[in-house]
Simulated scan of single mutants.
Amino acid sequence: MNNLYIVASVTLLSSAFIVTILINKIRWIVKSMDLIDRPDHRSSHIESTPTMAGVSFFLTVIFVLIIIKPWDTTGVGINLIAALGLMFAVGLKDDLVVSTPRAKIISEVLAIGMILFCNCLKVSSLGGFMGIGVIPDFAAYILVTLIILTIINSFNMIDGIDGLASIIGIVIFSVYGFLFLIFGLEFYFLLCLCFLGILIGYIRFNLSKNRKIFMGDTGSLFIGFCIGFLSVKFLSIDSKLFQEFSFIPSNKLIIIAAIFFIPLFDIIRVISIRLINKNSPFKADNNHIHHVLINSGLSHFKASLFLGSLNLILASVFIFLSRSYGSFEMIGFYLLAFILLLIVFYKLKRNIEKGNRFRYLVSAIQFLF
């Protein structure tokens, strides 16, 4: 199959189909072995639910990588399978017996190391971001590690209500898929379709009343790593290729941050609140933005759809602006969006604590979604 669009269709459809078949099997195994998620004091759910749908994600990716192997001209697929295998093991262990944050971070760093030294992912320049051009290898390795760690754990933390992680993931993979397609990076475009098909196949189970299943840490750590992997590839794109498509190379980091806006906003906000309250940044609580929306009266689906739509809008706006403005101006736009969103969620939080003073905010979201 040499036609890209035929392979793309096969990749998307087969990913969704395989995940659907595997999840049905996984639900039966998990329920028969009583490996289910039981709600606690901070849970948004009231019923015990099967978890570990992420097992199907890993198995599906292995199969699809065989289909798209001819497009992997750099051989990065082998490194990706090894890294995803480790992330799968870490997530599975965390779903079965809770891992310590330190153990998870160490495992994540090891997985990052498996892709860090691929020449096709080498980051040698920031394209002029804040005046920074060429960077030494050790600085690039540190930067890449921090980016992927932030993405993995941000995505893991956003997975708190039905549909949210799936919808955010669908938005992110759709945007990256579009960008990789126009840049002519066909293998990465096909990877995006694989991950997109996986989440499309999974989301109907996550939103189902009768066949519900969670992706668990097995899934959220896995998908988070995939997003981090694609983000590093985007950062490593030659600046000359950016200029050919009228993008300003210095905005690569800003575009990544915009594509991942909602999870990044959430983790920064939540960790800041924990530190202000003199709590550990790793101590779980119900201060996430999805908890605020749920406690304000939105359903899981409406809250997830709102945050996913907001992420898509912001990513699209920043990608459009990145063709006309430099990195300093883009940072200003990003901070403005960040602060405005902080104000909105502060008002929603106050609405929960002190009454209905800002009910119109929730009413507007209810009307739109």
Rank of each mutant, 00 (worst) to 15 (best):
N3H: 15
L4T: 15
I6W: 01
S9Y: 11
S9D: 10
V10L: 15
S15W: 00
F17L: 15
R27K: 15
V30A: 08
S32R: 15
S32L: 08
D34E: 14
D34K: 14
R42Y: 11
S44A: 11
S44P: 01
H45T: 08
S48P: 13
S48T: 11
T49C: 09
A53E: 04
S56V: 08
F63T: 13
K69R: 15
V76C: 11
G77H: 14
A82P: 01
G85V: 05
G85E: 06
L86A: 04
A89C: 05
G91E: 06
G91N: 08
D94H: 06
V97F: 13
V97M: 12
R102D: 09
I106L: 13
S107L: 03
E108R: 05
L116R: 07
L116G: 10
C118T: 14
L121D: 09
L121F: 14
L121H: 09
G127L: 03
M130H: 03
I132G: 05
G133F: 03
A139I: 11
L143V: 06
I148R: 00
F155D: 03
G160L: 04
L164K: 06
A165T: 07
I167G: 01
I167W: 00
I168C: 06
I168H: 02
I170M: 13
I170N: 02
Y176C: 08
L179D: 10
I182R: 11
G184H: 02
C192Y: 00
C194Y: 01
G197S: 04
I198M: 12
I200G: 04
Y202N: 04
F205K: 05
F205I: 05
I213W: 10
I213R: 08
F222T: 10
I223P: 04
G224N: 05
F225Q: 07
S231V: 08
V232Q: 02
K233Q: 00
L235A: 08
I237S: 09
D238V: 10
F245A: 14
F247T: 03
I248F: 04
S250T: 07
I256Q: 02
A257Q: 00
I259W: 01
P263A: 05
I267F: 00
I276S: 12
I276D: 09
N277I: 07
K278C: 12
K278H: 15
I289T: 09
I294R: 12
S299P: 08
H300I: 09
F301M: 06
A303R: 00
L305F: 12
F306P: 02
G308L: 02
G308W: 02
G308N: 05
L314F: 12
F320G: 10
S324V: 12
Y325E: 10
S327E: 06
S327Y: 04
E329A: 15
F333L: 11
L335S: 08
A337E: 02
A337C: 14
F338V: 00
I343R: 13
Y346R: 11
L348R: 08
R350P: 04
K354T: 12
Y360M: 13
L361I: 13
S363R: 12
A364K: 14
I365T: 07
F367A: 11
L368R: 09
